[in-house]
């Protein structure tokens, strides 16, 4: 048990003159309590206007990605005491326009995703009354790709995205490679061509921020380098 000070980014779209400011709340925090638990506690007992997204609170829905003590993470997966500091600074994901307090516009994430034709593309019709076969080795190539929860922590941490708002983004590259790497997919060109664009793959400067930011320990930078090879291979 310890008293922690939460410094929370406040922004009310109806009060543009005030703009962004940090507001402090103190809370008695027990072991095992997550940053999301603390935000809920603040909202429910101290100030109902504090606003953030949340849903599953078990690290699978991707709603509560935010910047905690300068690091992108899921608020529901970070234990407040484990941060080891008496002040916890909570800010919205960088690089996205802020709607209110900790809530950001996620349209750029969706735009990036849509750009890569994010679905299995097949030309051969599937067998009747049967699944398509895929060996465990082929399926293993999707490990580290299919687990993405679209929380946006990676793209928010990426300097290329900060510089270019139309940058497709590491989350979408990871998704593109999830299909290109799938033995069942027959639409590599359709996933790859949109990446060969001035807002695409070549803007990645392998800074690895996305890898550090991913709360699911995925590796978009690796996916990007695989995609570059595929583009050369497919001579796009």
């Amino acid at each position: 048990m310890a008293m922690l000070t939460f410094k929370i980014n406040r922004y009310n779209p109806d009060d543009e003159r005030r703009g962004h400011y940090m507001q402090e709340y103190t809370l008695d925090v027990q072991k095992g309590t997550t940053v999301l638990d603390c935000l809920n506690e603040i909202k429910w007992t101290k100030d109902g206007t504090v606003t953030f997204r949340r849903s599953c609170r078990s690290g699978i829905c991707g709603s509560c990605a935010m910047t905690i003590n300068g690091v992108n993470n899921l608020a529901c997966e970070v234990q407040a005491l484990a941060l080891g500091s008496s002040t916890v600074t909570v800010e919205p994901l960088r690089g996205f326009p802020v709607i209110k307090d900790l809530v950001v516009v996620i349209d750029p994430l969706v735009r990036g995703l849509l750009a890569v034709n994010p679905y299995l593309i097949t030309k051969t019709p599937p067998p009747t009354d049967q699944e398509r076969f895929q060996s465990p080795q082929e399926r293993a190539r999707l490990d580290g790709l299919y687990e993405c929860i679209l929380c946006g922590a990676c793209t928010s941490s990426c300097p290329s995205f900060w510089a270019d708002k139309d940058y497709i983004g590491p989350h979408a590259f990871l998704k593109a490679y999830r299909f290109v790497a799938d033995s069942r997919d027959e639409g590599a060109r359709e996933h790859l061509e949109p990446l060969n664009d001035k807002h695409g793959l070549w803007r990645c400067h392998t800074i690895f921020n996305c890898v550090e930011a991913c709360p699911k320990d995925l590796n978009p930078t690796k996916a990007i380098s695989e995609l570059k090879k595929e583009i050369v291979k497919e001579s796009i």
Partner: peptide, 10 residues
Amino acid sequence: EHFGAPFSRT
């Protein structure tokens, strides 16, 4: 599976 779901495999 036909839609693309990545099931584990035998």
